[in-house]
Design a protein around this nucleic acid. Structure first.
Lengths: 351, 351
DNA sequence: CTGAAAGCGCTTACAG
DNA sequence: CTGAAAGCGCTTACAG
């Protein structure tokens, strides 16, 4: 609650009014571009604003008008290039609309998420874009932000049940359809023993991606061995370390649908360590199309979500909500695009 | 100047005061943790705060106290992983100190930088951390932010001369020393024909990195051929496209110090296209140690700047400045660490 | 220990 | 077309 910092005296409306012999009201009308003000008066005031180097105090104006010019952006992880691109997209649209982005990172900790939301909400943002931390809970979030402030949920579902009266919009990727495409692609190339690799099953995006994989396998009448479904943290390191689990029992898979690109790149490392050449004797796909994907060896077949465009979209959805507070909550599901590169081009006949 | 959005009625101090029969002043004292309030009164007020779901309006408080709880973070490029990590570091420290981060991206455009700074300054931030856009000019920045708000310059120098009365702190990487280390490393491995590849000479960091290279070459008594100094945009694509320029004339270099990792990875591509194997028949180094560096083929020898730590450091320097507004402006130069990986291990005898 | 009053910098009916 | 007055939600001397 503490920890602010004094700032030095600044020029105010009163200084300008005094400086050119009009009332504060008139200066305010000039600032807000009102047509009521006489041209000559306006010119005089504008000259004085320039002369004294006036800077508008938007916080004071917001207080008086009971408005807000901030949009809070709360991310589970900013260092991840996917979210960095997303944030850049959000900030573009937020800025174009004359708002300012209030940033908060939670580092995947629901406790930090509570703290961050609590701090941001005190600044009275017009709306919130939240990409929840893993295991973040709907009722906790509601307690932190209240039901007044419009909120857009991005990327993940919240745990617990979303209270009816919280009209939150959602923007999510079509995870399930994405991995279904990837799996069908591998099947079309002749693979029959396909693994699902990486991620934690308690994350909603992982469950959805796994479901798309399982769906495609079932539709093709292909069985799924238990040891083809390996969980691990969604990082390169963890994925490299877990690679042996795929080959712990016979029959070994000839291909893998990975939870995301980080996991896929880790699997590439793990395969290399076993003397396998991904793209030649093992096929794999990722998810996200991060910058590294097209540069890795081999280049990664993956699912592109266009994170910057998603950021712009998220901001636009939120701005729209601000315009129509009463409209029905919307759930926007974004299709995801299969980008075919060499990593999935291994033949399946290496059985 | 327009474009705000109405928010619904919220619980205020007056509601709480009325709700438990005390004055607004008393409630305020409770909120700010004053020891003046009777225990029983405090308990009653706190209960009422909870009951009504009060949320503190920090903007109103800031206005009255003439304080600010915002730190503006203005970045030339957020999508770049280096700056994403940096931003995450800044936000950590800013949040820990009870401030909130106001984000603005400029996408390397001085015009957008002006707009972003203009918008942020209206929100009265306590301080600003600015990583300038290329070609951003000191007097422009000063015009946008004024001399009142403490500003910390990160990463790049501003064009034009910095007015004396703007006491801006600076935090920069020791670019020159970094590339000197890289060049010396290549020389120690026996290379004598070493190129400096990528970047634009009108960026201050590029000039500094080139100077470190030239310094090491000169110290070793090695000549520098004109065609070993190739400029290009600091992207993979541009670097790949410019690779042939290194080999346009004899004698060809056997190694290159690259402006940054993106350029180095592009050079890797360009070399591959010529049938050369970096790390085997050509040695190269990068700068930044981005995540891809250790994963590329071959892994990249590079200079690590630890961007998240730099972000924390930048925020701490700014907070310190807020505590001591009158202290002398500081220029902090951060050493950068040589991380040796396979890309620089090509022997030099392929002449 | 508590309350009445003034004021942060703005905006907006309402008169004139 | 312009000004006097009230008020956004808070804080802080100042009395009592």
């Amino acid at each position: 609650m503490e920890s602010n910092t004094p700032i030095r005296r600044k020029i105010t409306l009163s200084d300008i009014a005094a400086g050119c012999g009009v009332s504060r009201a008139t200066v305010s009308l000039v600032l807000r571009g009102s047509p009521l003000v006489n041209r000559k008066t306006r010119a005089r005031v504008e000259e004085e604003l320039r002369r004294q180097g006036y800077v508008y105090n938007r916080m004071a104006a917001n207080l008086r008008r009971r408005t807000s010019s901030g949009i809070a952006l709360v991310l589970n992880e900013l260092a991840n290039p996917f979210f960095a691109e997303f944030a850049a997209g959000v900030d573009e649209v937020v800025g174009e609309a004359g708002f300012v982005t209030l940033l908060g990172c939670t580092n995947e900790s629901p406790a930090r998420e509570q703290a961050v939301l609590g701090s941001l909400i005190e600044h009275g943002p017009a709306g919130i874009i939240l990409s929840p931390a893993e295991h973040s809970d709907a009722s906790q979030v509601l307690a932190a932000v209240g039901a007044q402030t419009p909120l857009l949920l991005f990327n993940r579902e919240l745990g617990g049940s979303l209270p009816e009266f919280a009209h939150w919009d959602r923007l999510t990727l079509d995870n399930q359809h994405g991995t279904r495409l990837a799996t069908e692609h591998l099947i079309a190339r002749g693979h029959r023993r396909i693994a699902f690799f990486g991620g934690h099953r308690d994350s909603s995006s992982c469950r959805q991606r796994h479901a798309g994989y399982a769906e495609a396998m079932q539709a093709a009448g292909l069985p799924i061995e238990p040891h083809w479904q390996v969980e691990c943290a969604p990082t390169r390191l963890a994925a490299a370390a877990q690679t042996p689990a795929l080959f712990a029992a016979a029959p070994a898979p000839t291909a893998a649908v990975c939870y995301n690109d980080a996991v896929a790149l880790g699997l590439v490392l793990g395969l290399n360590q076993r003397g396998l050449h991904p793209g030649r004797d093992f096929a794999l796909t990722g998810f996200d199309d991060i910058a590294e994907a097209q540069l890795s060896a081999p280049p990664l077949t993956t699912l592109a979500a266009a994170p910057r465009a998603r950021g712009r979209q998220a901001a636009e959805l939120l701005l729209q909500r601000l315009r129509e507070p009463q409209a029905e909550p919307r759930h926007t599901i974004v299709p995801v695009q299969l980008v075919i590169r060499e990593s999935s081009c291994a033949p399946s006949d290496r059985s």
